[in-house]
């Protein structure tokens, strides 16, 4: 089938349009998702198409509108709640952790919470400390929710439908640097599998594991490494909770070396979890210590050169890969 040129933003919008068309129970709500079109333009035009009841502007009350989404989900609706950014989701963390993630268990299985919560994450746009967090690892810590990170056009287009079909809460992280990424997208064919990690580039010498906004940087690093004769395999985690251990370990068993790249701070990061699992499950496959490339332990600074120095970059990933490959078991 013919592909079409689209952007990450348009792919997300098309997924929303499809969901709103397919199921009366689906509605979108969040700050400025209506006429404004969403802070990042994802929902532009949807209020004109579906009306203000189903594309619902909310007051600036993150806890109330996220909690309202959770309550509506319990009652059988399929809300998609847009939290403008992960930074503001902290104001709703009580609702996500103490209600969405716990209600099924606390009620002895009586309640389902089929809510989808979307939010922008990440740094790289000189927005300084309060608008540059990457807290996916915090959310991935919580039993009872699924955490997805679409890094490609296909995943931007395809992850919403399975998220809405999931009877449990799903949090989707959209990295702010990806919205303008454009490329060719094939038409949707059947439901997307969101449980598996994906090998985005095959290689033999080292496995680079990443997700979301770091994927383009890691692919660039793999290009750099290829020029030096190092063949890097790039694994896109896609689902941050649950993690697809099988795909991770299969790759590590082939390359015997692993570097985890994560825009979160290193201490207590998702990269730490992935690294620990590799050590637990594939220790004897390893020819080198598992490497990690994370953000520096500093509030993300405004100045461009400082921000770039604080975040994982392709050159730093390549350096970590070289170090791993330099180790001979």
């Amino acid at each position: 089938m013919a592909t079409a040129t689209t952007t990450y933003r348009e792919a997300l919008r098309e997924a929303l349009r499809e969901a709103l068309s397919a199921d009366d129970r689906v509605f979108l709500m969040g700050e400025d998702v209506g006429k404004y079109g969403g802070s990042f333009g994802v929902s532009l035009g949807l209020v004109e198409e579906f009306g203000p009841e189903r594309v619902r502007d909310t007051p600036l009350s993150e806890s109330a509108f996220v909690g309202t989404g959770i309550g509506a989900a319990i009652a059988g609706m399929r809300p998609v709640v847009e939290v403008m950014t992960v930074n503001f989701s902290l104001l709703a963390l009580d609702q996500i952790l103490n209600n969405a993630a716990t209600l099924r268990h606390m009620s002895g299985g009586q309640l389902s919470v089929p809510v989808v919560i979307r939010m922008t994450t990440g740094a790289g746009r000189q927005l300084a400390a309060q608008h540059s967090h990457s807290l996916e690892g915090w959310y991935a810590h919580i039993p009872g929710i699924r955490v997805l990170a679409p890094a490609t056009l296909e995943d931007a287009r395809g992850m919403l439908a399975p998220a809405l079909a999931d009877p449990d809460p799903v949090v989707i992280f959209e990295h702010g640097s990806l919205y303008n990424v454009s490329g060719e997208l094939a038409p949707v064919e059947g439901p997307l599998d969101v449980a598996s990690a994906a090998v985005r580039r095959s290689g033999d010498d080292v496995t680079l594991l990443t997700y979301g906004g770091s994927l383009p940087k890691v692919l660039s690093a793999a290009d750099l490494l290829a020029g030096e004769g190092i063949s890097a395999e790039v694994v896109d985690l896609r689902s941050l909770r649950p993690l697809d251990d099988a795909t991770i370990m299969a790759s590590v068993a082939r390359t015997h070396r692993a570097v985890v790249v994560d825009e979160g701070w290193r201490t207590g990061s998702l990269a730490a979890e992935v690294s620990a699992r590799i050590t637990e499950q594939a220790f004897y496959e390893l020819d080198a210590p598992v490497g990690r490339v994370c953000s520096a332990e500093v509030p993300i600074p405004y100045a461009r050169h400082l921000e770039e120095a604080a975040l994982p970059q392709a050159e730093g990933v390549a350096a970590a890969a070289r170090e791993a490959v330099g180790h001979r078991g």
């Binding site: 509605f27 009841e53 806890s63 109330a64 509108f65 996220v66 909690g67 309202t68 989404g69 959770i70 309550g71 509506a72 989900a73 319990i74 009652a75 059988g76 609706m77 809300p79 009580d94 609702q95 103490n98 209600n99």
Partner: peptide
């Protein structure tokens, strides 16, 4: 913590 939840149940009822 239950107050937003109740609003959501009410929103579903209204919709």
């Amino acid at each position: 913590g239950g107050i937003p939840l109740a609003a959501g149940l009410a929103l579903a009822e209204k919709m």
